[in-house]
């Protein structure tokens, strides 16, 4: 069952993406699009290549073949400097949060601004840090170390760090992994809230069905390296295809 989404204005177009590790072909002619202000969830079993997909989009992994067009530009042929500039427009929320443990929350948030040579004054940088922290509800943690925060708080700070550059696109890698159901729900709500506040488009990698249901406008099911099926949560939940249905049982 393959449905084609109505792509009025795609911000990401992935075409026939292939990536293998040795003999293991994790992505095998994978294609999907992401429209403006849309949340697309890529659903798949553990080890199916979901994280590999978004790491290819951000340029952390080089695919073997295929095309990744982001905001009208081809990622795979970009030189390193152009890719760095593009990365300002793409946020990435890591599964493990990837907060720098030797830095305070403030320094974690300032780091991408300093590194991307964003031309803003110290005062503006300070204001932006406070703004994103308020948006994730953790303004009081500004001078704390990541080790002093709970898993859910670290996830929020990681999201704040992603938002600090005001990206057009956010890639979420298992945003609710390792969190209790209540915190997971809070993070899912935050993902929806971020889209409204920052007008972002997102690809969310997940197999947490509560998160999928809460955040997805459209779902792409990744099976055997291909986008096996696409559709809304309701469409796919009603599917008779056992490969799709297994995720919704």
């Amino acid at each position: 069952m393959v449905q084609t989404a109505e792509n009025n204005n795609p911000v990401i177009t992935i075409t026939n993406l292939c990536k293998a590790f040795g003999k293991n072909r994790v992505l095998d002619n994978f294609s999907i699009t992401l429209d403006q202000k849309e949340n697309v969830v890529v659903l798949g079993r553990s080890g199916s290549g979901k994280s590999v997909l978004i790491k290819c989009i951000i340029g952390l992994l080089a695919p073997d073949s295929g095309s990744i067009n982001v905001l009208g530009e081809e990622i795979l042929t970009m030189d390193h400097d152009t890719l760095d500039k593009m990365r300002v427009r793409i946020g990435f929320l890591f599964q493990s949060n990837a907060l720098y443990d030797s830095m305070t929350v403030r320094q974690n948030l300032e780091f991408p601004m300093r590194r991307h040579w964003i031309e803003i004054s110290q005062k503006e940088a300070e204001d932006r840090v406070k703004e994103v922290l308020e948006n994730v509800g953790l303004a009081h943690t500004i001078d704390m170390m990541p080790s002093e925060l709970s898993g859910g708080m670290q996830k929020r700070i990681a999201l704040a760090r992603t938002l600090i550059l005001k990206p057009d696109i956010i890639l979420y890698d298992e945003p609710t992994a390792g969190l209790d159901p209540v915190t997971g729900k809070e993070i899912s709500n935050l993902i929806k809230q971020v889209r409204e506040t920052y007008n972002t488009s997102s690809i969310i990698i997940s197999h947490d069905m509560k998160c999928v249901k809460a955040t997805a406008d459209r779902i792409g099911v990744l099976i055997n390296g291909q986008c096996y099926a696409q559709g809304s949560y309701a469409d796919l939940a009603a599917s008779n295809d056992k490969n799709v249905n297994q995720f919704f049982e």
């Binding site: 890591f94 990837a98 780091f111 590194r115």
Partner: peptide
Amino acid sequence: GSMRVTEQIDAMEVSGT
């Protein structure tokens, strides 16, 4: 090593470093 396994090195690369 710890930065590698907790994806901090990847995060640095994504941050233009």
